[in-house]
Amino acid sequence: MTDGKKDDLFPEAALEALFDEARGAQDLRLPDDLTARILADAEQAASGREAPPRAPRRRAGWGAFLASIGGIPALAGLAAATVAGIWIGVTPPDAVQNGMQAFMGTASSEELFELYVVDSADGYGFDEGEG
């Protein structure tokens, strides 16, 4: 012992003897009711894990459509393809235009345009000369 006067301290040997006595007096059994409570908890925890998995929620409407095409990433791809298609249709690159001319036998994009556009107002147009 290094601190304090000897008489002010409980002897270390006596302290060790007290520790020994405390270890020896230890009751190493669990009370039956506590054991029962612990095992009931174990049962509850195990039963909770074994509960049948909940059925997946059914999707409807927009969710079903989105799921059918593969989710948000697929939707983004679809939108990009749509925009690209419209853009190519309005301002076709030369390669596309030349290919179509060769295939359809038309000379210009105006002719190609007329192939597809039906003038439903033919004969009903406004003519500046008419009164």
Partner: peptide
């Protein structure tokens, strides 16, 4: 342990531990 020896000081005889 040092703190315990201080806390239990003076109780040696009362607790039944005789001087060596």
């Amino acid at each position: 342990k040092r703190a315990l020896t201080r806390l239990l000081a003076g109780k040696r005889d009362e607790l039944g531990y005789q001087d060596d």
